[in-house]
Amino acid sequence: MKLTLNIWRQKDKNSKGQFENYNLNEVSPDMSFLEMLDVLNEDLLHKGDEPVAFDHDCREGICGACSMTINGRPHGPEKQTTTCQLHMRKFNDGETITIEPFRAKPFPVIRDLIVDRTSFDRIQQAGGFVSVNTGSSPDSNAVPIAKVAADKAFDAAACIGCGACVAACPNGAAMLFTSAKIGQFALLPQGQPERKERVIAMVKQMDSEGFGACTNHYECEAACPKGISVEFIAMMNRDFMKASFSR
């Protein structure tokens, strides 16, 4: 396949960026999207240019590192698929593909397609845990948990923290991400003792990082590579209201 790539290049946080055009002539449909970028980067190195910087690691859709917007969609056109799992057979010969970083105010660009997502870590640090020290836990079967609750908690816990939900949201909201973690704990008995403090602390942190508000566009759910449902947002909102009133 032949492709034209229109890629965002930006030297560092403080520089202004711009799109650059590149042509690739021998793309195999069996390549993953990142392997296609590898080919481009090897070419660039040969020419003495600097490769396009992008975050990636596991290349199997689980670490959440890869983070680019492809033709206007975070992680590209295929449903529930991260960029690293997207394959070139989903594109057409001769196509022009536009590639840019995940855009959101709380995700400043570090270089080219790499953004700073440490705001996500700070939201988790605000309360995304159960306060239990190593060694102080009861036998794991001491508290039975209904299969449906465990399964649902897992659905929330499947979040890979990539940030596609934020990049897809017209308001740059991080509601889906934040609610997934809160939801996981809210559904489990282990999460109950700190339930109120958790939702308040995490929502507060989310707001202070500069993420936007939710106005029910649900673009986040559509972009989520793990199919996390917006029902967790509703659940978080209810929890937040309850917790705020009972304080």
Binding site: F129, V130, V132, T134, G135, S136, S137, P138, D139, S140, I145, A146, K147, A150, D151, A153, F154, A157, Q184, F185, L188, Q190, G191
Partner: peptide, 12 residues
Amino acid sequence: DQCVAQGVPFAR
């Protein structure tokens, strides 16, 4: 035991 206490959603 530790992981369950942390809220790891193992299969049940």
